[in-house]
Structure formats: C-alpha cells, structure tokens
Amino acid sequence: IKYVVNNIPITTGDIAHRAAFFKLQRKKGDAAKEMIDQTLRLAEAKRLGIRITDQQVDAAYQRFASNNKMPLAKLDAVMAQSGVTKEHFKEFIRAQMAWNQALGARYRSGEGGSVTEQDAVRRMLDKGGSKPSATEYMLQQVIFVVPASERSATLAKRKREADAMRARFNGCNTTREFAKGLIDVTVRDLGRVLAPQLPSDWAEQIKATKVGGATPTRETERGVEFIGICSSREVSDDKAAQMVFQAEGGSNDKDADELSKKYVEELRKKATIVER
C-alpha cells in the first residue's frame, strides 16, 4: 500500500497500472496523483448516491472495443500486454462515468459558475430531476405567453390556440413561420440536450414523442407551452473512456475541465491522504 485516501488504500500495483495506461495513451502524467484523484472522484460519486453497475461498465468496455474495431479478446490482450490490465481499465471507465454524473449534478445545482448548454436548457424548461439514458435530443420550445394579470380571462383561449398550433407542428423548421401570425408566441431553439438533463416534468413526454412531433401542451407559469422534437440520436455515455487511445488527452469542453479541476481540488483539501 502506497497511499491511503480517506481510508481507501492505493497500492503500488494500482500506480504501476496507471503509469502503463499513460504510456498506452502516449501521454505524460503523474500516475500516483491521478490514482489519488480517481479515488477522490469515485468516493464523491458514491457520496452523491451515484452507482455505476458492472453491466454498464462491461457494456462500455464492449463499445470501446467495437469503436476501436477490435474483438474483445484482442482488447483484453492489449490491456494485459501493456501492463494496464482490463480490470484497471474497467475501473477507469467506472470512475469516468460516475464523475461525469457527479459533474452533471454539480452543473445542475448551479455551482458550476459557468453555464453549460444543458444548464441553459434546464433553466429555460424549469428545474427538474432526470432519468439516465443515452439519447441526445434537439429541442424547440414554443410558449404562448399569458401575462399573470390576464391569466383567468385568456388561459383557456390560449390553450386552444396552442393546441391548434401543436396539431399542425411538423418539424422544427416551420415553427417560426407558423408563429408569425400569432400574438405573444415565443419560439426558442434549445439546442442539444442529453436525456439525463431533461427536467422531470417534461422528460416522459419528450421521450414518448416521435421526431418531428411535439409534446402535448402544458399550462405553466409563463402561459401554455409545448416542446418540439427536432431530432434525436443515441450517444455513448462513455465518450470520455473512448478517447483514451488518443495521444492528446483532455476534453474540448474547457468549462467542464475547469469545473472538474476545481471540484477535485476542493475534495483534496477536505481529504485525509496518508503516504506509507
């Protein structure tokens, strides 16, 4: 045992595997520091109630092999020969997936400092919970605005107008054209949203709606709204793990990187790290 981080041991073997992993990725790094950080990240995810199952990890490992066009046995062999081991790589995948969820929770709670696309969507659609999934949606929000002072008098009429427009909805390209002749109708392109970022009050309706269609209308504090589904596609939730063979490690999302760094630094400050 080389280090003990909040009562969790890190062995010299763990550090050697991570050093081999860096070598495989052709990148430089402090393997001991990286293992300490990974231990902190996993512990924090656990504290937040995030649990990545063995099935999820195995599926991600399988996808990684497929994406790199190699049979599973070949990937196992690469991991063994390089000194990484498949167990170590799978633990890395687990940590990445758990940490991504922890970061997502941090963003959604507004502690990120910077606003991500998903965060902006969440704020537009109101706060809510989520169910994990790997579908990415392109969404459009249509709001028939009803001022609070006119709510009792005009809400029913506005709902009929919204229902009529929703019935004619046929993809996101024509929405603004439809809205032109209508008074106080706001159309917002919400961009890409991953299923885990969908607010709970809209999530089920969005998931149940076909591409090119729109959710049923809903009365909200702003008036009457519906969401159009422009497109959807499956995305892999272990994108980070898929990047490991690239020479340049690191994400393109500087905001996420910054938040991750800051978050880990906070965890380090609070942690008890003992070197043996």
Rank of each mutant, 00 (worst) to 15 (best):
I10D: 02
R51W: 06
K23S: 07
K74F: 13
D30N: 14
R188E: 10
R188W: 02
D238N: 15
F144N: 13
S251D: 14
I206S: 01
F64D: 09
W202R: 05
V145K: 10
V274E: 07
A256L: 05
A95H: 01
I50M: 15
I10L: 06
V5L: 02
N67L: 05
A105E: 02
E204Y: 03
N100S: 05
K90Q: 10
G250Y: 11
V187K: 06
R276G: 11
K46H: 14
K262N: 06
T154K: 15
A59H: 08
L72M: 10
R94N: 04
G29D: 06
T174V: 15
L139P: 08
G104T: 00
G49R: 10
F226W: 10
K46L: 12
K27M: 05
S200E: 03
T12R: 07
T154Y: 11
V115N: 07
G171A: 14
T39L: 09
A59M: 08
E221H: 06
P196I: 13
E258V: 12
Q62R: 12
L190D: 02
A240M: 12
V5T: 03
A120N: 10
W202Y: 12
P196S: 12
G228H: 05
R63T: 13
V235P: 00
S114I: 01
M124E: 02
R188S: 11
M70D: 03
T175I: 15
E161G: 14
R47N: 08
